[in-house]
C-alpha cells in the first residue's frame, strides 16, 4: 500500500443548525485524482471550499503529508483551486494573469520566463498579451488552470470547471486537463455532477449524497458494486429491487408479455420512449411499483410500443445482488 498524501478526517460542516455534510473521511495518494460526484446541493462544493480554506470546517481536520491544515490561513495552505467560472482578472493580460500567484514568490523576470514557458507548452503563447475578454470560454478556463498549476500546489481542487462550457468543448477540455494533471503529477480532487466526467478523470470516485460519503473506490467497482441505494441511483445503472438488492442494467431486458419460467423475475412497467446511444437501443420505462424511470437495453428488432402501454422488465433471479454496504471498496 502506498503512503497517504492527503487526508480528510471526520470533516463536518453546518451553517447554523443546518448540517451540510458530516464525518467525511477519505485519503489520497500522491499524484492521485479523486472524482467527487453527487447530486446537486449535497455539499460537494462546500466540502471543496472547506478544504481550500474559503470556509472553516465545523469539525474534523485535513492533513497534507501529515501536516494539519485546519489552523492554517488560506494563503498558507499549499492548495490551488479552479472555480466554475474562469475568474481571470479582466484588467491583466493573459501572461500577467498566469503569473499572478508566482509573482508573490519570485522576481518579475523569473516569473515571466516561467509563465511564458507554461503558455508555450500548452499552446496559448499567442495570447500572452491579450486580455481575457478576447478569449473564448474554453481558453479562459485553460488559462485559469495554468494559473493554478504554475504555483505548484500540493493539492489542486477543481470545482465543476467545465460546467459553463458547451458539450463539445467540454469533452475536448477534459482530455486536455487530464493529460496536463498527469503530466504535472498533480494530486487533485475534481468535483462534478456528471458521471461520465467522474469516470474519465478520476483514478477513484467518491459519491457524496445526503451529507455523507456513501462510497469511494475505483470507477468500475463503484459502478458494478454500489454500496447502497443512493449510489446505485446516482452513479450506477441498476434496477433497485428493494433496500438491500439491485440488478445491474446489463442484466435487464424488456418484454411485452411475461415469460413464465422459474428463474425469471418480472416487474410491470409503463413504456415511455426509446433512444439510441453508442450503437445500442434503449427503452425508457417507468416502473409501476415505484414510479421511477429506468433505461433498459433493447434488442434493435424489438418493436416500439406506444407511450403508456404496459410491459415487463425481466431479469434472471441470479442477477440479483446485495448492496455491498461497504464504504471503502478496494480492488
Amino acid at each position: 500500500m502506498n503512503k497517504v498524501y492527503f487526508e480528510v478526517k471526520g470533516a463536518s460542516k453546518s451553517f447554523k443548525t443546518k448540517s451540510i455534510f458530516q464525518s467525511v473521511s477519505f485519503s489520497l495518494q500522491q499524484k492521485e485524482i479523486l472524482s467527487l460526484v453527487g447530486p446537486s446541493g449535497t455539499g460537494k462544493s462546500t466540502l471543496l471550499r472547506s478544504i481550500a480554506g474559503l470556509e472553516p470546517l465545523s469539525s474534523g481536520d485535513l492533513y497534507i503529508n501529515g501536516v494539519s491544515m485546519s489552523q492554517k490561513k488560506m494563503k498558507d495552505r499549499p492548495i490551488g483551486m479552479v472555480f466554475q467560472q474562469p475568474l481571470l482578472f479582466p484588467h491583466l493580460t493573459i501572461l500577467e494573469n498566469v503569473i499572478y500567484g508566482l509573482r508573490l514568490k519570485k522576481k518579475k523576470r523569473e516569473a515571466e520566463i516561467e509563465g511564458l514557458r507554461f503558455l508555450q507548452s500548452v499552446g496559448l503563447i499567442d495570447y500572452k498579451d491579450a486580455y481575457p475578454h478576447s478569449l473564448s470560454g474554453g481558453q479562459q478556463q485553460r488559462v485559469a488552470l495554468i494559473r493554478a498549476l504554475i504555483v505548484k500546489p500540493k493539492l489542486l481542487l477543481l470545482d465543476e470547471p467545465f460546467s459553463n462550457l458547451d458539450p463539445d468543448l467540454r469533452r475536448e477540455l477534459r482530455d486536455w486537463v487530464l493529460k496536463l494533471l498527469k503530466q504535472e503529477g498533480m494530486t487533485a480532487i475534481f468535483v462534478t455532477h456528471d458521471r461520465e466526467e467522474a469516470m474519465l478523470l478520476g483514478d477513484r470516485v467518491a459519491v457524496l449524497a445526503e451529507g455523507s460519503l456513501q462510497q469511494i473506490g475505483p470507477p468500475r467497482l463503484v459502478y458494478d458494486e454500489p454500496a447502497n441505494e443512493l449510489v446505485a441511483r446516482f452513479y450506477s445503472d441498476a434496477l433497485i429491487v428493494d433496500q438491500n438488492h439491485y440488478i445491474l442494467n446489463q442484466h435487464l431486458s424488456w418484454s411485452a408479455h411475461p415469460n413464465p419460467a422459474d428463474d425469471q423475475l418480472f416487474f410491470e412497467a409503463e413504456w415511455l420512449n426509446d433512444t439510441y446511444q453508442y450503437g445500442q437501443r434503449y427503452a425508457h420505462v417507468k416502473l409501476l411499483k415505484t414510479n421511477r424511470r429506468y433505461v433498459v437495453p433493447l434488442q434493435s428488432d424489438e418493436h416500439a410500443m406506444i407511450n403508456g402501454e404496459r410491459g415487463f422488465i425481466c431479469a434472471r433471479k441470479a442477477a440479483i445482488h446485495r448492496f455491498t454496504g461497504r464504504e471503502e471498496t478496494d480492488e
Binding site: 481550500a52 474559503l54 488560506m74 494563503k75 492548495i79 490551488g80 483551486m81 472555480f83 467560472q85 475568474l87 482578472f89 499572478y100 500567484g101 508573490l104 514568490k105 494559473r147 493554478a148 504555483v151
Partner: peptide, 13 residues
Amino acid sequence: GGMLEQAQMLGAK
C-alpha cells in the same frame, strides 16, 4: 466575491 477568492487562493495577502 469570486474574483477576490481567486486571488486569495493564489496566495495573495
